[in-house]
Amino acid sequence: MPQLTYLEAIRQGIWEEMERDRTVFCLGEDIGVYGGAFKVTDGFIDHFGAERVIDTPIAEAAIVGAAFGASLTGMRPVAEFQFMDFIGCAFNQIVNMVAKAHYRWSAPAPLVLRGPSGGNVHGGPFHSQNPEAWFVHAPGLKVVCPASPYDAKGLMKASIRDNNPVIFFEHKYLYRRIKEEVPSDEYLVPLGRARLARPGRDLSIITYAAMVYVALEAADLLAREGIDIEVLDLRTLAPLDREAIVRTVKRTNKVLLVHEDVRTGGIAGEISAIINEEAFEDLDGPVLRVTAQDSPVPFSPPQEDYFLPKVSDVVREARRLKAY
């Protein structure tokens, strides 16, 4: 099996779907000749042609609107946001036009809105955000946040084939840092199913995207202390794999929720409520959270480091919870 980076896996996922299905096309800013700000679509325009790899004006609302319009004629657009921070420019199109279409007038909207999110690359307040929770709160959207190359590819292919609007958050810190063997045979990773990244008995960490690696590193450290950590990688936030969440709670009885998104209104609050509603009797301690602080993402490296959840934060909270 070939070793693929997270970025190459995403790229391959889109490429294969474009080869397989002629209704799939890409649009976005600088995605053609330049190949995208992070080069996810590098070489696409040469291979698939300018008709299917469209360099657009800098107009996020138009990109989403046009993608939706094209999807109404039976196309499957894959639209890139240069940074997911800029998705705010298209917020109305996404939550009011696209997300409500099927409920209101039975119009499926098979489009993928993808792009880099997340911090730890010193991008500052407008190139580092994790805005996934905004969209989890808009019924009608699917929200995908892969952590591994295998998942990124399989989820991308499944997202493109999905008949619903999918917001695909790629973590830019992982783009070239994470590499793993990915099968060359075709496979899909279904939306809405979590992945057990590490089995354990003492305590569950429920997380996603780049924080999966922070959780795994913390688990390795804690294993030396005899604390056996289970790590559940959610993979998609909408739909959320409630069964997997409840399953892990029942197994370990203690839960630590970790996300890079800011604390208030983040998905951790929702998961905590689900656990309260569906697995309260199984809890042997409070549901704790490790998240970014409630502030914009600061630019300067020491400040960003302070802002982001770290392995040491996870270790500290896990110890506290284990001792509870």
């Binding site: 107009a59 609107g65 046009a66 094209a70 109404l72 196309m75 109305n92 036009m97 119009a107």
Partner: peptide
């Protein structure tokens, strides 16, 4: 189907024309 906010149909109809052209 329109939505209540104004101007949002314009890129959508542009996209319809794009989809047909493809």
């Amino acid at each position: 189907a329109p939505i209540s906010t104004l101007g949002d149909l314009i890129p959508v109809l542009s996209g319809v024309a794009l989809g047909a052209r493809l």
